[in-house]
Design a protein around this nucleic acid. Structure first.
Lengths: 143, 143
DNA sequence: GAAATATGGTTGATATTGTCTACCAAACAT
DNA sequence: ATGTTTGGTAGACAATATCAACCATATTTC
């Protein structure tokens, strides 16, 4: 198997299995969230003055998709919106109290998966992996 | 940002961007294939006595999904089926002449993406990444 | 200051990928 | 011979992704 196949398979298989494991963990915790919900909630929690556009930029996803996801999260009362003082077109979204509580549980669920993922790995190996992944991502984005 | 967030983001963002770039390349080559089509065709090309079940096991995907994908590829005359001499329930699938030709083009398209992905990276860095990814994948599968 | 262009967000429509269940024929175990 | 498991298929639905068109607002240009 060529180098090309190796790297492609590695990324493809790892990402899929990781997603499946995370989804299973979220489900086992009884959380009413999908993968993208959790990802978006993490971003909202970690981003001051968070707007839909910032999530679009940070995630690389289509703005239509992000708009829909935010609507679902709003419908579940996990986030709240406030007018953006700097731009009448947009709103600042933030986690609601319920959203915060739910995200705490989600973090636990995901922590379990990451612990399994990284078992037997040294800190510098993890850092190496993240660093290499970052460089590859940068390479792809240069276009 | 915690170690947990780092690794999760790294895998998530890299996999997505890689998929998007690959899809774009396939499209630019004018190939009538989706991501999963290309993946499956690769597997068929690389697997002697290939059955649906072997693809299910190798890819981790649902057998219903694999069945549908194979049907689509058959419909596009990219693969052909022959009775499995060892098991009357299953068929051996292989690339047709047309499938071989199309896969040659797909490999070119994907080669371009991998070349960009790996730009500025040494062979041992790539091997390290693939090795680390493999270990993580193994960790997740242990359950 | 008005007009043109770009941007943030929304909606509609559709495509692609994924998941779960039930079923049938065949293979395997008892 | 019977019961259980397996390979594959089909139905139904869920989740994720993409593209286009639109509106209100912001920015740029003249």
């Amino acid at each position: 198997m060529s180098k090309e196949s190796d790297i492609r398979n590695a990324i493809w298989q790892l990402a899929f299995q990781f997603k499946v494991s995370s989804k299973k963990a979220i489900r086992q915790y009884g959380l009413p969230l999908n993968g993208m919900h959790v990802r978006i909630l993490h971003m909202i929690g970690a981003t001051p003055a968070c707007t839909a556009n910032r999530i679009v930029l940070a995630s690389g996803r289509d703005k239509a998709q992000i708009t829909r996801l935010l609507k679902e999260l709003e419908g579940m009362s996990l986030i709240q919106r406030a007018p953006n003082p700097d731009d009448k077109r947009s709103q600042i979204v933030s986690l609601s109290g319920k959203g915060e509580a739910l995200m705490a549980r989600a973090r636990e669920a995901e922590q379990d998966v990451v612990t399994r993922l990284l078992r037997g790995m040294k800190k510098d190996e993890i850092d190496t992996f993240v660093g290499l992944a970052g460089r590859m991502l940068d390479n792809l984005r240069e276009e």
